[in-house]
């Protein structure tokens, strides 16, 4: 579908204000229904949801009725169907988070973006080991639940990885370098949109990705992610004003 992009990850947060949830993504499209697969309850909000505006920069979806009111626990939204033509986009995992009453300040990141995998003890088996190497060469090994993005994982573990747009594919601040080419090849190809942002990343390499787009899966166990040594690069090949 033309002009349609569904961002995954944090961007697709539902900001809940009482019963009205606002779906904010970088997508252009019309949200017809949201299906939320919560580990504890699967519900189809399309039956009771009302799309109050039809233009997708910031679609307002009000979820009515207690049967579909999201619990105060994280879950996934998938199967977002879009557009006047009713096309269904491939299932996309959205992580829901409830930001409470204040729109401006989300609660601590670790509260906001934990995933269902992290919520249940048996999910421990579904964690992979990921090592972050910071720009000074220091290493931090963390366990990342399958399904979680490296940006969220970094933030949950106090690893310094910027995420200016909070995962909505509108910046390149969560740029990471995958040091093992074999593991790099196990990742799905970057989308055009991710490549567009990587174009602007400092210290771009052949195995660069955006942390928000690298989602933990079992094959990636042992992943090593280096943060670009930004300060050094800036001095050497920083942007220079282009002549007009």
């Amino acid at each position: 579908m033309r002009g349609l992009r569904v961002a995954t990850g944090l961007a697709a947060r539902l900001l809940q204000h009482g019963r009205v949830a606002e779906l904010r993504t970088g997508s252009v499209g019309i949200f017809r229904s949201l299906v939320c697969n919560n580990p504890s309850a699967t519900y189809d909000s399309s039956l009771n949801s009302r799309v109050s505006d039809t233009c997708g920069f910031s679609s307002r979806v009000s979820i009515q009725g207690s049967s579909c009111a999201p619990r105060h626990e994280p879950g996934f939204v998938s199967n977002v169907s879009l557009g006047a033509s009713g096309e269904i986009v491939e299932p996309n995992k959205f992580i829901l988070s409830y930001l409470g009453s204040s729109q401006l300040f989300p609660p601590g990141r670790s509260n906001g973006f934990s995933t269902s995998a992290a919520a249940t003890p048996e999910a421990d088996a579904e964690k992979i080991s990921v090592t972050f190497v910071n720009k000074d060469g220091e290493e931090t090994e963390i366990k990342v639940p399958v399904g979680m993005s490296m940006l969220e994982a970094a933030h949950e573990n106090d690893i310094e990885l910027e995420g200016a747009c909070e995962g909505s594919l509108a910046c390149s601040t969560c740029h990471v370098i995958i040091t093992d080419e074999e593991l790099y090849n196990k990742l799905p190809e970057p989308t055009d949109e991710e490549n567009d942002m990587l174009d602007l990343a400092f210290g771009l390499t052949e195995t660069s990705r955006l942390g928000c787009q690298v989602i933990a899966k079992p094959e990636l166990d042992g992943l090593r992610l280096a943060l670009p040594a930004a300060t050094r690069n800036f001095a050497v090949d920083g942007h220079v004003p282009k002549p007009h």
């Binding site: 910027e162 200016a164 910046c171 930004a230 690069n233 800036f234 942007h239 220079v240």
Partner: peptide, 20 residues
Amino acid sequence: KRGPTGIIGTNLIDADETVE
């Protein structure tokens, strides 16, 4: 400092340099 160029993220690296 550097002229009117770059994206928001460029300032992150720029600020790093100044703060260093």
